[in-house]
Nucleic acid binder design. Sequence first.
DNA 1: GTTAGTGCAAACCTTTTGCAGCTCT
DNA 2: AGAGCTGCAAAAGGTTTGCACTAAC
Lengths: 159, 159
Amino acid sequence: MKAESASKALQDQGFRLTRQRKILLDVIDKSGEHLDAERLYQLAQKQDPKINRVTVYRTLKMLKMGGLVDELDLMHHEGDQHYYETRAKGEHAHVICLRCGKVEEFFGEPLQRLRKQVEETFGFQILIARTEVGGYCAHCQVLRERELEEAAKSAPAGR
Amino acid sequence: MKAESASKALQDQGFRLTRQRKILLDVIDKSGEHLDAERLYQLAQKQDPKINRVTVYRTLKMLKMGGLVDELDLMHHEGDQHYYETRAKGEHAHVICLRCGKVEEFFGEPLQRLRKQVEETFGFQILIARTEVGGYCAHCQVLRERELEEAAKSAPAGR
DNA sequence: GTTAGTGCAAACCTTTTGCAGCTCT
DNA sequence: AGAGCTGCAAAAGGTTTGCACTAAC
């Protein structure tokens, strides 16, 4: 269970393992991924209705600094909130459909290659790397085309 | 002059070329890159003291939709504002030093490779791709190490 | 002359901060 | 016991919206 090793890592870094933090780690662990602060807050409330939104923010900040979660933007497709996922599964890019919002994950050598080249080119020490790709998924490409045709019909567009 | 072709592109998309927009395009063009809304506003004010912050936001949104600028986060190193740069210079990653804030740009084949693989793997139609890398630049790695030593000295840290 | 765009004020959303009281270790 | 953490209320920072007026086409 990942939540356990995360707890351990936190304690090793000198953080206290409070009731609230246990709950939050548990929710993040179970839920899998791409939670924003608000959603995490809502889920945590089911286990402790008195938990405070501020505690969620503070815990996320701590987890981020501690290197246990990564922060994502997902192309700001739904707004300017941040999303979080555990760092466990290895480096990957996020591919976001700007029409339906579906998020795919891409693991693949170009990411390692990029990392290496950046390190070599600039003598840079990488701590975080984030790649986000926005566009239309296979499914939405079709729908999108239809939508455009519709639009062209109803407003024949001068120009 | 890039600002001119951008003007053209805007007009072709049916947007009006107002005094304010001309100024903003000009500032973005001349300044080069990585402006956030506030800074763009400040620079624009030098040419028109009455220009409004809201107009800057609206113009940026338009330019983004029109595909003329790209939006960056630069790892939220300075806060949660967005940065903008013209789309002219081709795809590149941004490499941000989390200590001194310096931003390097990395052009290189892994980016094209990644793009291609994402398209092939998911049948995805890419509209935007953004890669941001955070860590320490060559210079700051040294300074960082010194800082850590200092800290260790003054607070010998149990654990 | 129309319609899109601007400026102003006010709202909005997400996140952070100050502080008194509570709780892990 | 005491530093670290929580909850609450309030503020901050960045961005958006409603509306009357103005300017580009």
